[in-house]
Design a protein around this nucleic acid. Structure first.
Lengths: 147, 147
DNA sequence: TTGATTGCAAATATTTTGCAGGCAT
DNA sequence: ATGCCTGCAAAATATTTGCAATCAA
């Protein structure tokens, strides 16, 4: 089964004018397939399987490009904010396993009216919002219960 | 007008068993009065007005204590995650001015039923959520429009 | 008195920057 | 051929840790 996401990502990167190099391709492939959020070091270690000479800096620069193309996004968690996940199609919200980092997206009820009302109360113009759920995925729930 | 928050904070810190020292008091006062989110360096610079010899490390350690006592909380923003704000009473959500860092809290509709439904769909047990609004406060709106 | 707390310095961790050579276009 | 991209090393940033002296309780 071909990875359609990856192929689509490469087209978007090409359209953005980025050169398609082995390091960028490797990071794009890893992130387009990633189930758990990953930080630069983890991506680095995985990319080295294919490209033994790749440097950590290159991972950071590839992530910059992928972020610019809105293909990946930084993920904020109580423990830290250096992880990344593939970005969702359109505006969606993140659901994260606080144990293993598995991520899912869900799209919301329309909360904008409520948000705008709060903005009005407080004298703010609301331009964006973050909504994120934390919990335990099926697998981790099971493991934690058996401990 | 006395700062009731500050006095209350000091009692909580005392109950927690922390020693009430000038550096801890200074940071507690600054944070209990803070309107805009502040990072360790900003708190440091302000604390030095009262305590010229205070060190940056002491700010970090005071923030740890204040976080432990749930009096302040770390604030996450797209630009970075090293700022702190006084923590709200109970579970409330943050509204932030993305220009000046002014912060307000609001308390929500009950979204738990919705969140739990999403968890069920995805096979997650939901343990926590983050909801945060970003925008421009009254003052910054005005300034930005006049630019 | 005594042990938590402080300030300093050094260590860590993460990310950014400068640069010469390499490679995608 | 051009200049974007890479890998390396060094710098910058943010935070933590070890330690002797200090001071709140």
């Amino acid at each position: 089964m071909a990875n359609r996401d990856y192929e689509n990502w490469m087209n978007i990167l090409r359209e953005k004018g980025y050169r398609i190099t082995p390091p960028l391709s490797a990071v794009a492939r890893i992130m387009s397939e990633c189930i758990r959020v990953m930080d630069a070091r983890e991506i680095f270690l995985q990319a080295r399987h294919d490209l033994p000479d790749i440097g950590l800096m290159t991972i950071y620069r590839a992530l910059e490009k992928l972020e610019d193309a809105r293909l990946v996004q930084r993920v904020h968690q109580p423990k830290g904010c250096q992880s990344f996940a593939p970005a969702p199609a359109g505006h969606q919200h993140l659901l994260l396993c606080e144990n293993c980092g598995r991520h899912e997206y869900f799209s919301g009820d329309d909360l904008d009216a409520w948000f705008n009302g709060i903005g009005k109360d407080k004298g703010f113009y609301i331009s964006d919002h973050w909504l994120q759920l934390f919990g335990q995925c099926n697998t981790c729930k099971r493991h934690i219960n058996h401990e």
